[in-house]
Structures are given as C-alpha cells and as structure tokens.
Design a binder for these strands. Structure first.
Lengths: 200, 200
DNA sequence: TAAATTATGTAGCGATCAATCAATAAATTC
DNA sequence: GAATTTATTGATTGATCGCTACATAATTTA
C-alpha cells in the first residue's frame, strides 16, 4: 500500500502521495475537463497536495499531461489487438470502429477520446502539440497495419478511419448514444469495404 | 463608405467604427483562434477600438460570437442549396460532403467549420453553449431534409453525415488536404448510398 | 549526531482574462 | 446656446492562469 513511499535507497523526505495514482486521477480529470480548462489548482486539490509538490513530481502541467496521454493510447483501443494477419483488414477496422463507439460512450462525463478531444480543444498551446504528436504516431501505426492488407488504398483508408473516429469522439462528447455510434461505424465500414475490396 | 456613421436620426456621438465590418473581422479571428483562445484584447486591437467601445456595441464576447456564428451557418454550406426535391437524397448528401471538403480547406489558417471547432474547443463555457445550439438547429434541419427522401433511415443517416462532417472539420484543422477529404467524403457516400437504397 | 538530500507548506510572482467605471467628446434636439 | 444622448478614452477591477522562491520537515548516509 505504501511501498512507493519506502522504496529502497530513497534519500530525502519521502513523498506523501503516489505519483502513479496521481496519473490515474489526472487522466480522469483531463478526460472530463480537457487540457486547457483543467487548472493546476483543480489538479492539486483533487490530489490533496500543494502546487509545489505537483511541480516537484511532474515538472509541468504539459509533462504531466504527456505522460497521461501516452499511457492512454497504449491502453485504450490498442491497434495491435485489432489487426491480426489471419483476419481481413476490413474486419479489423470494423471491430476497431465498433469498439470505439462503445469505448467513447462508456462514461458520459468522460466521453470521446482523451487525445482527440484534447487535440481539438487546443488551437496552439502545449496541449495541442502533445496530442498532435501522440495522434500522429498512432495514425502512422494504423496506416502500417492497413497497408499490410490493402496497400493500394492504405492512405485513403487511414484517412477514412481517422475522420470517422474523430467524428465519433466529437459526437460522443455531444451526447450521441452508443447504439447510434455503432450504426455510424457500420455504415462507415460499408464504404471502407467497397474501397478495399475494389482495390484487390 | 461612412454611411453607417451618419445614419438618419442617430442622436449622440457617432461610432468611429462599422459594427458590420467588426463582425466580419471577428469571424476570421474566431475561425483562426477559436472562442476561448481569442481574447477581448486581441479583438479590440484588431478592430482598432478600446474594450469599452466593444462592450457598448456588442454587450459581451459571447453575444458577439453568437451573432457571428449565426451569420456563419446561414452563409456557409447552406442546406437549402443542397437539398432539392428533384434530386436523390444521396446525391444531395454527396454534394454537401464534397463541398464541405473544399470549404473546410480553402484557407489553411481558418480550416474546418467555425461552429464545429468552437463546439469542440469549449468544454463547458458560453462558447460551447452557443455553438451547441447553432449546431443542433442545423442538425434538425438536415434530418428534416433527409427524411423527405429516406424517412426510414433519416436519423441514422443524419448521424453519419454529422459525424463525417465533424471528422472532416477536425482533419482539415490538422492539415489534411482537400483531395484527401474529398476522397473521404466519397467513401462515406458509398456507405450512405447502401444505407438509403437498402431502405427504399 | 552532523551533513546531505528531498518533499512539503506558505505565500506570492507576473501575466492575462472578461468586463467596467468615471470622465470626456461629439453629435442631435429643444 | 443649453440640455440630452451616445460613444469615446484611459485606467482599472477582481479572478484566475501556470509556476516558483523560500523556509521547514523528514528521511538517508557518514
């Protein structure tokens, strides 16, 4: 329980809070309020610590968010889990879009994708820079997966998936239900199937 | 040129700026920077006036934005221009999505839809409230148009169009090109055609 | 026990936010 | 010309932003 406080050979005064738990809490806070709208005051109050402790542990709000965003994409809708070589590419995409519909609507006050919504919320700030980088890495990974099964249309198919997921994330934020998004995902899949099979 | 200054029967000291021109300028500013990120200081500097003059003319930043947003939806991608009874509904949608692809990418520093991007940028503020209302009215109008040609699937088709346009606006903001978005629109149209024709 | 190290609490930094106040200037009406 | 009306200028207001300086507290190492 308090292992993190008494770690081996840690000199100096021990922390009174768990940085890992603080990342979990911060993830929920950023998902609910967005990057810009979530202030240090709200973060430190939720964590039960003072700003000085926050900055000693994480460096800056941007660095804190960056760690949270990277952990998020590694855990939520991991592309590796959807794209397997024994499965037609369009079926993988259909699964991904359907699961996105469900994931984006699981919690009403944390609707949509943490990264995609942060990307939209910031126009030029540090939050956008971070979300942009994380989203871009994910996009390239997605394109590589699609290229294995449909190289001729990998670029455009990636754009379609990206646009659809961004739109679904936005719609989820606006209150669109899970079943509606699942239907949207199904319609998008029809178009993608036509695109991919037409290129075979 | 200065007609607005010398309007008939206007008592009191005349304005030194044109409110209509200020709305045009503000539209470009909001489109570029977003609602939250655009401050009164930047607005008044761009208009060449002092904050007090701005508030005397428009009341508040929110009211200023509301007038701009309403003028925007009335002018940009007007639904009435796309949906005519002598035209299959899916063709109207295809035209709308294609034109959205072009509109959203005409100016790189004003990419995407002014209203949809404002909707995404604000999580709970006044900007979101306004953009939400404007977008909702537009959504209902779109659904009514689609229902005339495809009543059985009007709701889901409206969701598909809404999600696609929100995603295209986001992608345009992130630098996706016009031709890419046109291809995305074409793929989405394939799915919609299947949906609508399957319900006939 | 002394020195070194690290985290904490308190307090506040300068900047920016939307919005406003009082005083003044410029027009019309009487 | 005097009164009225409206817009202007200039200086702020209180709140909040991300962030930090400083002294103190709590731990390890020597």
């Amino acid at each position: 329980m308090t292992d993190h406080l008494l770690s081996k050979g840690a000199r100096g005064r021990p922390r009174r809070f768990d940085p890992n738990a603080a990342l979990i809490t911060g993830r929920a806070l950023f998902h609910t309020h967005g990057y810009e709208a979530l202030g240090i005051a709200a973060i430190t109050e939720a964590l039960g610590i003072r700003p000085a402790s926050f900055y000693a542990a994480f460096g800056s709000k941007a660095a804190y968010f960056e760690r949270i965003a990277e952990a998020y994409v590694a855990e939520v809708l991991p592309l590796e889990a959807f794209f397997r070589d024994d499965c037609p590419i369009v079926d993988s995409i259909a699964e991904l879009l359907g699961e996105a519909a469900r994931t984006y609507t699981t919690c009403s006050d944390q609707a949509g994708c943490l990264v995609l919504e942060a990307l939209r919320a910031d126009r030029s700030g540090e939050g956008r820079r971070i979300a942009m980088r994380v989203a871009q890495i994910r996009r390239e990974k997605l394109q590589a997966f699609i290229a294995r099964g449909a190289p001729a249309v990998a670029f455009i198919a990636t754009d379609v998936v990206t646009v659809t997921m961004a739109g679904m994330s936005a719609a989820a934020r606006d209150g669109v239900s899970c079943v509606c998004l699942e239907q949207v995902a199904a319609v998008a899949t029809v178009g993608l199937r036509s695109l991919i099979e037409g290129s075979a």
